[in-house]
Design a protein around this nucleic acid. Structure first.
Lengths: 189, 189
DNA sequence: CAGTTATTTCAGGAATTTCTGAAATAACAG
DNA sequence: CTGTTATTTCAGAAATTCCTGAAATAACTG
């Protein structure tokens, strides 16, 4: 099977991008292919379309499954495994972020917390701990924020993102209004 | 020069993390070291502390400089180059995100836009384009949102992040209030 | 059960990335 | 200009990551 040039360039680009983000190039290509495919694909399809060995495809799919990024399907009367990506692109992004949080961010926070418990033995160590504290607090703030957002349905999240900083200006306005109201003497007080 | 175990574990951890995010392990370690150091370091210091060859340090610093992640300093009466990371951790994160946006996100958006201009030659291609459109729109929305946020001063940004979804609930409340007001018949209408 | 098809595993070869030492360049001092 | 010190460059060695083919396993079928 030969990919059309249109699919080809998409697939190759995502292979490259993957490799810049710590994802194996061929796994990136496999995912790109599954993402744009208009039907579930089996390992043989992928192998043929991308020209990788069957075993490489098997390992790639295992990897993608471990990241919870693909869905296994079965076609009636066919015992091969077919795969798709989730329909919803937002779900894909959420899964990616969530997995990286679990695998990389949490261990990092935990390492930082451990080191911060050690009593510094020198000025150098004390300064290092101050820096690590700053890093810890920043990462924690961002992940807390993300987990808060994570709960929203896509619709609302999109709305909120489109508002951008506008929503904050409104918030400041509210604060000013209340401040003004509190300046006025209350009836009967 | 030998690193204290406290610094050692931080530096090694960040080397590992770097490599999972597409950053060379030794470059990650160099950055971690510069980040926690209580004074500017020169290439020789780094080389000695981490046990890398002088030339590897030179290339690593060049790389970090290309990412705009380090600052060059000079000490009076010393013609060697000394380096630090920016004081502000938020600035570091912003620079990282901004550089990746320029290097990876923008080319991806541009590739997607190009492909989306091609007239689909089959159902397969048409479906692929629909998926790419979804991806394009999502990435564009996230980067637009980020660039909006990017403009805020750190203080305000932190405040907004801490509010999380609360700010959105307030926004919805405002909408409901206005809706209620509009339901009431207007005087003289 | 034997035969067939689908999938996985994994040792080691291939490809890529990273790192080094030696040499080149640069920048200054006397 | 010569000598000294700092930095960069780069070819190839070293290390790591990736990929494959062969064999094993698994899951069905008649």
């Amino acid at each position: 099977m030969q990919l059309s040039p249109l699919l080809q360039s998409f697939v190759l680009h995502f292979g490259e991008m993957g490799s810049r983000w710590g994802i194996n190039r061929t796994v990136g290509q496999m995912y790109a292919l599954l993402f744009v495919a208009n039907k579930p694909l089996n390992a043989e399809d992928i192998s043929a379309a991308l020209g990788f060995s069957r075993s490489n495809v098997s390992m790639g799919l295992k990897e993608l499954d471990a990241w919870n990024l693909i869905r296994l399907k079965h076609l009636p009367g066919d015992r091969r495994d077919y795969f798709t990506t989730p329909e919803d692109v937002w779900e894909i992004v959420r899964t990616l972020v969530e997995e990286r949080r679990k695998r990389e961010i949490e261990p990092t926070l935990s390492m930082l917390r451990d080191i911060l418990l050690v009593k510094p033995g020198s000025d150098e160590e004390q300064h290092a701990q101050e820096r690590m504290r700053e890093m810890h607090d920043l990462i924690e703030m961002l992940t807390n924020w993300y987990q808060d957002m994570q709960k929203m349905e896509t619709e609302r999240l999109v709305h909120l993102l489109k508002l951008g900083t506008k929503v904050y200006k409104l918030y400041e306005m509210k604060d000013r209004l209340f401040a003004a109201a509190n300046d006025r003497p209350k009836k009967g007080a």
